[in-house]
């Protein structure tokens, strides 16, 4: 069934349409949450809570685009709240002195191994670590747009900001990531 029909039926209170929407979106939501919180239990909590909340807010949904961005908004806001609750400290990518020990370990593996498959794997891990160190809004923008592949319009709606802000966040975040990567590979 078309997404638009499903969303329309869901707004009217159709349980089966809701169940189908859960099935279609659960992996995306889980994946975003996992990238933000980096563990299964928290990702699970965010995923469950997101769908319960979108169900409660179904009367506010106007169309399909709105539905997608509302899911993204609920999921990312909840994940950010959870992060704050856990009082996790964000270290800016610029603060290289405070580099996490795991990155050092990865670096050691990287310089020791000439194998290119491993190199790729390590590069990915380093970038991931870098994303984790970005300031929250830049991090969310990169995860939604660059990693998960949502459009700038969807991300802007989800974050409640103009598309220009999404663009500039991406621009700044990617420049930081490239700098971070260059430093790690030196």
């Amino acid at each position: 069934m078309e997404l638009r029909d499903l969303v329309e039926r869901f707004i009217k209170g159709d349980q089966k349409a809701f169940a189908e929407l859960v099935r279609r979106y659960e992996r995306k939501v889980y994946s975003i949450a996992y990238r933000m919180l980096e563990n299964h239990l928290d990702a699970d909590e965010v995923t469950q809570e997101t769908f319960v909340r979108i169900y409660e807010k179904r009367h506010e949904i106007r169309d399909t685009n709105f539905f997608t961005s509302l899911i993204l908004r609920i999921a990312t806001n909840y994940a950010i709240d959870l992060l704050r609750k856990k009082q996790r400290r964000f270290i800016s990518v610029d603060d290289t002195d405070e580099m996490l020990p795991t990155v050092e370990v990865e670096m050691a593996a990287l310089t020791e191994s000439p194998d290119s498959a491993l190199l790729n794997e390590e590069l990915g891990a380093i970038i991931e670590k870098g994303i984790g160190l970005l300031p929250t809004r830049q991090r969310v923008t990169v995860i939604l747009h660059d990693v998960e592949g949502f459009s700038k319009t969807e991300v802007a709606m989800a974050m409640g900001c103009p598309e220009a802000t999404v663009r500039s966040n991406l621009h700044i975040a990617r420049a930081k990531l490239k700098k971070w990567l260059a430093k790690r590979l030196k």
Binding site: Y30, R35, H40, D44, T47, G124, I127, V142, D146, V147
Partner: peptide, 21 residues
Amino acid sequence: LMERMRDRAVPEPPPGYWEQL
């Protein structure tokens, strides 16, 4: 950078997770 970011999958949750969710 973009290719590497998109390459990274999150770990699969435990078996039976989606149904339970």
